[in-house]
């Protein structure tokens, strides 16, 4: 009897708890389906004016790397771009650029204006390769292990702190042992 009249209150407490938790969740960020899977098979020509294109083979040579999805039309990409330029100077890890649905000249000009941190670039003009990677916005950044396994995907802008606290420690693990126990 007592329980019966308490039931609505209990259900509400449950819902309120979930709502509170929900305030700090990000429902729009969809986690990648490719974590723990090998990088998709692809081969792309470089961005106009560059000579190193990007393909599956480049990501499975034993060295861990970062794959950054960028485009000249993507305003937020400009925000995170200095982070990559700075990281490139340290030569700690190869950063590859996946240029998504861009005009060849625009992409080339963009890299000249803001700096080119990329070891290799792949110009995905039609966007088909990006779909194979499960890309749905830019910027997105993948952490790829030396054997070509996708470890992490970061949606939206990567900041300096994220790089120092999450991404670089993981890459160092991967470099040393080929494995990592860190989470994204």
């Amino acid at each position: 009897m007592r329980l019966k009249v308490l039931l609505p209150l209990l259900v509400f407490a449950l819902i309120a708890g979930a709502l509170y938790a929900g305030l700090s969740l990000r429902p729009r960020d969809i986690p990648s389906a490719l974590i723990g899977k090998p990088v998709p098979a692809f081969e792309l020509p470089p961005v106009q004016g560059r000579n190193a294109g990007l393909s599956t083979a480049d990501l499975t040579k034993g060295e861990p790397s970062l794959v950054n999805v960028f485009a000249s039309w993507c305003a937020p990409c400009r925000i995170e771009h200095p982070v990559w330029v700075e990281l490139a100077k340290t030569k700690e890890v190869p950063i590859h650029g996946l240029n998504w649905k861009d005009q060849p000249q625009a992409a080339s000009r963009w890299l000249e204006t803001f700096g080119d941190p990329y070891t290799r670039t792949g110009a995905d003009i039609s966007g088909r390769v990006a779909i194979d990677w499960g890309v749905y916005g830019a910027p997105e950044t993948f952490v790829v292990a030396g054997d070509g396994t996708i470890m992490c995907k970061y949606i939206s802008v990567v900041t300096r702190e994220m790089l120092d606290e999450k991404i670089l420690p993981m890459l160092r693990d991967l470099k040393r042992t080929g494995k990592t126990s860190r989470s994204c």
Partner: peptide, 13 residues
């Protein structure tokens, strides 16, 4: 909601 349901659980009986 919590207040009214608590009141309910006290008084509904």
């Amino acid at each position: 909601v919590g207040g009214s349901l608590a009141l309910y659980s006290f008084r509904a009986g």
